[in-house]
């Protein structure tokens, strides 16, 4: 990257950061609140009935899953909503007219998505301290899976934001793909508690590995090896990044 192209990337990243920061009540505060409501309700209902991995209290088990769910959903929301709004209002032209390359474009949107995901995830974790103290035992795993998970969902957000021409198409992508894959990825349960069929199906869900690897960073135990999760998440991120970059390079739905 030349100094000029780095400056261009930084400007676009800053713009994407400002875009969610200026409406942080909606983009950070609201998702923290709704995730904490999950924590309150589920922990209240199930705390006395469920323990996971032998000795981990359900509320403690729930915290990393909810934090990661918040990271993933908000990373997706950031890039997808920014792109579709820019396309529909037409102001995407301000970026398309400039020397910013498709790689810088991709990187700026994905990094901004990770930042928002991290901000919301951090907010959820801080709020969870009112209920239970859950500290990471291996912070590096937490950081790695946060960044990679945020980048994967940021990339999916770029794909959805470019593909969708209307807000309801984007909502369809979010409600029928992202939400089920997140909810069925072991946020609220260990996959070992599932019937064997659904246990097997869960292993085809890449979101499961993001959440399971992230949870390993907190408890040092997980449903599958964190190295397997890392490998699968890395391959998935690589494939998605390649697909997104190919879309951007071709000008699909951006440059006629």
């Amino acid at each position: 990257m030349t100094p000029e192209s780095f400056a261009a990337f930084r400007a676009l990243l800053y713009k994407e950061f400002l875009r969610f920061w200026k409406v942080s009540f909606q983009t950070l505060g609201a998702p923290v609140l709704s995730t904490v409501l999950y924590l309150m309700i589920f922990s209240h209902v199930l705390q006395a009935h469920v323990t996971v991995y032998g000795a981990i209290e359900y509320t403690a088990f729930l915290v990393p899953g909810l934090v990661m769910m918040a990271v993933l959903q908000n990373a997706f929301a950031n890039s997808s909503s920014s792109l579709i709004q820019s396309k529909i209002t037409g102001n995407i032209v301000f970026v398309l007219l400039t020397p910013i390359s498709y790689r810088e474009f991709y990187l700026a949107y994905v990094v901004a998505s990770v930042l928002r995901g991290v901000a919301v995830g951090l907010g959820v974790w801080l709020a969870s301290l009112f209920f239970v103290l859950v500290l990471p035992t291996s912070p590096l795993w937490v950081v790695v899976f946060t960044i990679m998970g945020g980048a994967i969902l940021g990339s999916l957000g770029v794909i959805a934001g470019i593909w969708a021409e209307k807000f309801d198409q984007l909502a369809g992508f979010q409600n029928f793909l992202i939400m089920p894959l997140t909810m069925l990825a072991g946020v609220f349960y260990s996959v070992h508690s599932l019937p064997s069929f659904w246990y097997g199906v869960s292993h085809f869900n890449p979101f499961f590995y993001m959440i399971d690897g992230f949870r390993y960073g907190f408890f040092g135990v997980s449903d599958v090896s964190p190295w397997l999760s890392l490998a699968i998440v890395s391959v998935f991120l690589g494939l998605l990044a390649a697909l997104t970059l190919r879309m951007l390079a071709s000008g699909y739905k951006l440059r006629g």
Binding site: A11, T89, F94
Partner: peptide
Amino acid sequence: VFDPFFTVREMLRLQSGYFG
């Protein structure tokens, strides 16, 4: 077209940034 999130000066600074 315009970006409703920003002020005039912010828009012009961002646009300058896009050109490095």
